[in-house]
Design a protein around this nucleic acid. Structure first.
Length: 150
DNA sequence: GCCAACGTTGGC
DNA sequence: GCCAACGTTGGC
């Protein structure tokens, strides 16, 4: 099993939204590396840290699970969508997504500030300066370490 | 709202 | 294939 971290802006889609819905397709990823992680790396049952970005207290707020294999993101075909991509076609979809299932909400937010302060996590891409990936792998050791911080 | 970092686009 | 311009992300 692999571990992941996925970022979402709580104004757009928060851990509470996921809790309410139970499961959601993770649409709108328009970055090749993030897409490749979803398409090639994720398997059903993999665990995900749900991360809130672009907000008052950025950090990990919950745990989710990969619920489906990757499949084409329908929003790329919709001219009315913000995520429309004129370069994509049904024959040759460019963007893929997975469905994500709610597992639990953490009792508290493990803030980015705390994560950055942990020497053990210094190699996580998340805490590196300038990192903008919205989907990234987490090592098993880092996963255990972070779970222990709750 | 600012701005640094970074990815993508497009002219050449 | 280079690289400047541009757009986006995301912490602060």
């Amino acid at each position: 099993m692999n571990y992941w971290l996925m970022k979402s802006e709580p104004d757009a889609f928060s851990i509470d939204d996921l809790k309410k819905k139970g499961q959601e397709h993770w649409d709108g990823v328009r970055n090749y590396q993030a897409r490749n992680y979803m398409r090639d790396g994720m398997r059903v049952g993999d665990k995900i840290f749900f991360y809130h970005s672009n907000c008052a207290e950025p950090g990990i707020v919950g745990i989710a699970e990969v619920a489906t294999e990757a499949y084409p993101d329908a929003s790329q075909f919709d001219p009315k969508s913000n995520y429309f991509d004129p370069g994509a076609s049904h024959d040759k979809p460019r963007w893929m997504l997975v469905d994500v299932k709610f597992v639990k909400k953490l009792k508290r937010t493990i803030s980015l500030k705390e994560l950055q302060a942990e020497p053990a996590l210094a190699e996580m891409p998340l805490v590196k300066k300038g990192n903008r990936l919205s989907v990234m792998p987490v090592s098993a050791a880092d996963w255990r370490h972070i779970v222990g911080m709750e």
